[in-house]
Amino acid sequence: MAESEMQRIALSSGISLDVVTAGDPDSPAMLFLHGFPESHRTWRYQIDEFARDHFVVAPDQRGFARSDKPPHVDDYRPEKPVGDAIALMEHFGKERFTLVGHDWGGAISWMLALTRPDRVERLVILNAPHPYIFQKTLFDDPEQRAASQYIRAFRNPELENHIAAIGLETFFDTSFAKHADLALMADEKANYLDEWAQPGAMTAMLNWYRASSIVVPSMDEEPKRPAFLDALFPPLQMPVLVIWGVKDSALLPCQIDGLDQFVPDLTLVRVDAGHFVPWEAPDEVNRAMRDWLPA
C-alpha cells in the first residue's frame, strides 16, 4: 500500500485543493468528502483502513483549511463542490468511484449521486440528511426546525465579527460543546484552530450555508413551501449505506424516517454516537463499511 500523502491539485473547475491520497492508484477508488467545520482529517480513522484495498482520495474542500477560498457566496452553491468532486476524480482518471460523505460532504454526495449517477458506483452517507426529507422536516417537524436554527445564525453576515470578538478558541469550545464530546477531540484542537485561522477560512466555511437554497423558517413563520416538496422526487439508482449517529443533536432521527422511499437499495446502520460519527465511533463506522462493501 502506498503511504498517504498531501498534494496540491489544480482542478479543471478553476480552483486548487489540498488532497490526501493513499493506496494503490490502480485499485477501486473511494472519494471521502468532509463537512463543516472540518477538513480531510474527518477521515483520519478511515483513510489508512480503506487504502488497504482502495485508492483513497480525501480533499480539503473549497473554502476549508488551505484549499482555495473563492470570494463570493455563489462560489459555494452546491453545484460548485459537486463539480470539484468530479474534476478531482477525473484528475486521477477515475470515472466511477465509491463516494463517502459526512455533514456538508454528505449533502454534496447526495447531490452528486442524484445528478451524476453515472459517476457514483456506491454511496456512503454519514449523518447528512437526504435533501427532500431535510427540507420537509424543516417545515413539518417543529423539533427539527428548532434544532436547525443555527443555520439561520450561520447565515448572519455579522457572525464573523462576533467570532473575531470572542476568539477562535472560544468559538471552538462553544461550537462543538453541544454536538461532540470535547474530550474525544482534545488532540485535534490545534489542527482546527490552525485551519480556521487561515485567511478567509471562516467566511468561506460559513458561505456554504449562505449559498444553500434550503429554506430554514424561523420558529414563528410559515413561508411558502418549496415546490419540489409536492412533486415526485427521483430515487437513487445505486446501493447506499447510511451510517447514522443517533445522538446527533442537530440532525434528529426524523432524517432517516422513510428514507427507503427515496433509496430502494438502502442499508441503514445506527450507531451510538453523535454528529461526528466518523471519529466518534471509528470502529463501528469502519466495520459497517467493510461489511457492506464488496469483498
Rank of each mutant, 00 (worst) to 15 (best):
M1K: 02
E5M: 12
R8V: 14
R8Y: 13
A10M: 14
S13N: 11
G14E: 12
I15C: 05
D18H: 00
T21W: 06
A22E: 06
A22L: 05
D24A: 05
A29F: 03
F32I: 03
H34Q: 08
H40T: 09
T42P: 02
T42F: 01
W43R: 03
R44K: 11
R44C: 11
Y45W: 15
I47A: 06
E49T: 14
D53L: 09
F55T: 05
P59T: 09
P59M: 10
D60L: 05
Q61D: 05
R62F: 11
G63I: 01
R66V: 06
D68W: 01
P70H: 00
P71E: 10
D74F: 02
D75Q: 00
R77W: 01
E79P: 00
D84T: 06
A85R: 04
A85C: 12
I86F: 07
A87R: 15
L88Q: 08
M89L: 13
H91C: 02
R96I: 07
T98S: 07
A107H: 00
A107W: 00
S109A: 15
S109R: 07
W110Q: 08
R119Y: 05
L123H: 01
L126V: 00
P129K: 04
P131D: 04
Y132K: 10
T137I: 12
Q144G: 10
A147R: 15
Q149A: 09
F154C: 11
F154I: 12
R155G: 11
A164V: 12
A164C: 13
G167C: 10
L168K: 10
E169W: 03
T170H: 00
F171S: 03
D173N: 11
T174R: 06
F176M: 04
H179R: 11
A183N: 11
A186M: 08
D187C: 02
E188N: 09
K189R: 14
A190T: 15
Y192A: 03
L193E: 02
D194E: 14
A201R: 05
N207R: 11
W208N: 08
A211C: 01
S213D: 14
S213Y: 07
S218A: 10
E221L: 11
E222T: 09
K224L: 13
R225F: 06
D230V: 02
D230G: 06
A231W: 03
A231Y: 03
L232D: 14
L232R: 13
F233V: 03
F233E: 06
F233I: 01
L236H: 12
L236Y: 12
M238Y: 04
L241G: 05
V242D: 00
V242A: 04
G245P: 00
V246E: 07
L252T: 08
Q255E: 14
L259R: 10
D260G: 09
D265V: 04
D265G: 07
D272S: 10
D272V: 01
D272Q: 12
V277I: 12
P278M: 11
P278F: 10
W279S: 09
A281G: 07
P282W: 05
P282C: 01
V285Y: 02
R287F: 06
R290T: 05
R290D: 03
R290W: 04
P294D: 15
